[in-house]
Design a protein around this nucleic acid. Structure first.
Lengths: 191, 191, 191, 191
DNA sequence: GATGAATGAGTGTTCATTCAT
DNA sequence: CATGAATGAACACTCATTCAT
């Protein structure tokens, strides 16, 4: 993989996301993606080993940018609840702004290529949040239960609400974001 | 004249679910599905108009059977919390038992074919639960907020926890089911 | 071939002609023809050995009916010119009335199945006309040249003019039929 | 980057003509044509949008080459009869030489794809001949009747006589060509 | 580095025909 | 006699990938 033209690289990512969202994995052929990116199919293979590699790399790049967005202005010092609330709001805002990225990852997460992802590495992007939760548990602010369970009530509702395919009526605004967080907080916090 | 063979129909459904789970939508060709079902590719087209029709019908059948399982022993008279708890437990048990069905629907829900589903019809399968929640709101047992939000905290965590691709460590047992429900209940109930 | 229901037989012929004209040989499958004739594909095979047999039989039936139409009111006694003129007019009238039959035979004559036809048998349907022409040659009313050449100037123009695919503007009426015959007669007669 | 191979293009045309003549439109599959042309089926689609496009383009190329052959040495100055006689002879010679091309167009003209051809454009190839005929009519050398009728007696007999499927006994030589033309001329000329 | 041509293997689908009733 | 179910083979076409330039 000889990297040269950053623009082509980016055009390929965007073409991939756009096409997969519009016509799905099944119909998104290399030829179509290359055309959408104004690039020859052969060129695509300079930047990615093969088709699966392209998809995986696209996924990883999105996850990376998501983690950056989520941790924007994040400061553990403000306390557990305030910290998590910021993360919660950042997630909603990122997803609202980049709904196409989000749709892509949702599709990708549920397809067999997902198993090619190094989950631990992706998780590490979000480490500061995990540390804050652990602190919350230790300080008896958050219920002392299985970690997956906590994450579940913090993440799953966001993905559910923000997914227009599932919640087509849900409106994302400051108020609904706050209400949502209060429910999540009621679920995981000690009383 | 021969008569349509119910066994073939069923074999097709099972082959579809198995293959889609194992190799994904992209690689699940009609030829492979037919072979897995011990049926000629041409025969598949007697039972389904085309490949998409096969996938959609498979999805609908699963959703139907899920709704039946969820509502087993359901009796609104037992009260809001107990009623919802039963539903919650039924969901976990169904998903544990039929993890392959569940995986299929998760993939399907996030692929473009999902838009071909009449969502209202599918929702209607679960109507009794919706009515119980509405009663809970009216009786001030459940928070008076957007309906989607309530559903979200009741459904999304189940799908999240039960999905081995996401929560590979989570163990489904009587205790973890109960804990999960208590969190969900804390989220949606009036204190 | 066990013949029983004359109606089904006829329905099959008409369905074949209609479909071949509308969508061509290539797309006219046995299944479609059977459906058009309100008959099961399997039933078709009671009346015809296979698909080619169906097409050939359809062609032969049309040729037979054409020969009957052409020879209607034919009487060699009226003389060579009057006799041929009647035949000429009968041809135009038959083709105008049964343009779908005609289109079918034109397509069929130019496809490889045509070689399966016993040309001599078909020609024999039109024997009286051939005899009249021979008489015309003997009586020095018609030019004494190759027989094929005579037939050619009597038949080819009709097929050409009556074919809406070639002569889309040509109008078939009493006057144009007469003019056409005069040209043909000028061509073949001893001035 | 490789460059489009003119040889492949030509091989495809010839394979198409050969196969369609030998086994007909119905049996001439893309796979067979590609094999005959020593080319991958996929390659065929680089040169032609689809199968119909291949057939249409083949037809058009033949018509173009026919028009060039017909107008070879054509000079309106030699007069109407001599001019048309040259065209008549050129047609016979071209058809004799390229009987396979001719057979293909005969089949094509009578199949439903024919409607995809821009007839006016094809006609324009032969414009000089049409102009000569018009001059003949104006000069009262040719009968003043419907144009289609004139064309019919000039063209249909050639196609008829030259078609070995119809006139299997007819021998094309200088004498028979002349005799044929005299008949045609007797038909259309003002005696 | 970048490309369009080229391809064998595969796609979803339909085919002519036969089978079991 | 009549049928719809059933099928292996074939269909037109597209695929991910490589090649020659």
């Amino acid at each position: 993989m000889r990297v040269k033209d950053e623009e082509k690289q980016q055009a390929l990512f965007e073409a991939t996301i756009k096409l997969v969202n519009e016509i799905g994995f099944v119909s998104s052929s290399v030829a179509k993606i290359a055309k959408e990116a104004n690039v020859s199919p052969a060129t695509l293979y300079i930047y990615h080993e093969n088709k699966v590699d392209l998809l995986v790399n696209t996924y990883l790049q999105i996850k990376k940018s998501l983690s950056l967005a989520i941790l924007e202005d994040f400061a553990p010092e403000v306390g557990v609840k305030k910290g998590l609330k910021l993360v919660w709001r950042n997630m909603f805002q990122y997803i609202s702004k980049h709904n196409d990225y989000f749709q892509f990852t949702e599709q990708f997460s549920n397809c067999p290529y997902a198993s090619l992802i190094n989950k631990e590495e992706v998780d590490s992007y979000f480490l500061p949040v995990l540390i804050l939760i652990e602190k919350g548990i230790k300080d008896k602010i958050i219920k002392d239960i299985d970690f997956d369970m906590i994450i579940c009530f913090l993440v799953a509702p966001v993905l559910h609400l923000a997914n227009p395919k599932i919640c087509c009526n849900f409106v994302v605004n400051e108020e609904s974001i706050n209400i949502g967080f209060e429910l999540a907080w009621d679920a995981i916090s000690c009383n």
